[in-house]
């Protein structure tokens, strides 16, 4: 099935020009704390993509029946239900990762990406574009997470997904892991650097103020 231009824009826009983290500034909350290792970052990215896509579809199907006044509560209930499902699945099949993510799985509920996309897109569009929008934003969120997780795990503990990458001879020659990378603030600094690079490529995104 060939995708029309509009669908393509909906799906691919969030990966670059309209990225949820570095351009729309959504969903930073739960993003940073899970990126000290690559594996939880990957799991988190997948979980958020799934929840965003399906909550977008559900709200988009309900959009004409929800009274405007209580829509936030309705949205939160739909999202919370999906997140509960995801968290139970994680507990059953990936218990260790679930332990590492701790409260951050639950915090997907208040991840601003979800509410932001529900408000901005799903309430005004049909189920299929909403689904693509959810996938796109989930992936846009995901790749930032994975990049940060990759850098922090590689430099911070010399491993990737738990496998040692830096050869032993390096350590014998005096190389040391950068413990600073494992600390929380480094995630913020890395995002700052990513934004810097991204904005020097995309001049129209630069802020004048």
């Amino acid at each position: 099935m060939a995708l029309s231009n509009k669908t393509k824009a909906v799906l691919l826009g969030p990966l670059n020009k309209n990225n949820p983290i570095i351009v729309q500034v959504l969903g930073i909350c739960s993003a940073l704390a899970v990126t000290s290792k690559l594996e939880p970052a990957l799991v988190m990215a997948i979980a958020v993509t799934i929840v965003t896509a399906f909550s977008n579809v559900i709200i988009s199907m309900l959009r004409n029946t929800i009274p405007n006044r209580i829509r936030i509560i309705v949205q939160l209930v739909v999202v919370a239900t999906l997140v509960t499902l995801v968290s139970e699945v994680l507990k059953a099949f990936a218990y260790d990762v679930n332990k590492q993510l701790s409260v951050f799985v639950g915090l997907i509920v208040t991840n601003c990406i979800l509410m932001g996309r529900l408000e901005a897109f799903a309430l005004g569009n049909g189920p299929w574009p909403s689904f693509l929008d959810g996938i796109g934003n989930g992936l846009g969120y995901g790749w930032i997470l994975v990049v940060i997780g990759f850098v922090r795990e590689l430099l911070g503990s010399g491993t990737l997904l738990g496998y040692p990458i830096i050869p032993k001879s390096f350590y014998e020659a005096g190389y040391q892991n950068n413990g600073l990378m494992m600390l929380a603030p480094m995630a913020l600094l890395l995002i700052g650097v990513i934004i810097w690079i991204h904005r020097s490529q995309n001049k129209e995104l630069q802020e004048t103020a």
Partner: peptide, 14 residues
């Protein structure tokens, strides 16, 4: 310039 606004805010928070 590319760091203005959001970028520098992140680094400051860090």
């Amino acid at each position: 310039k590319p760091l203005k606004g959001l970028g520098i805010t992140f680094i400051l928070t860090g």
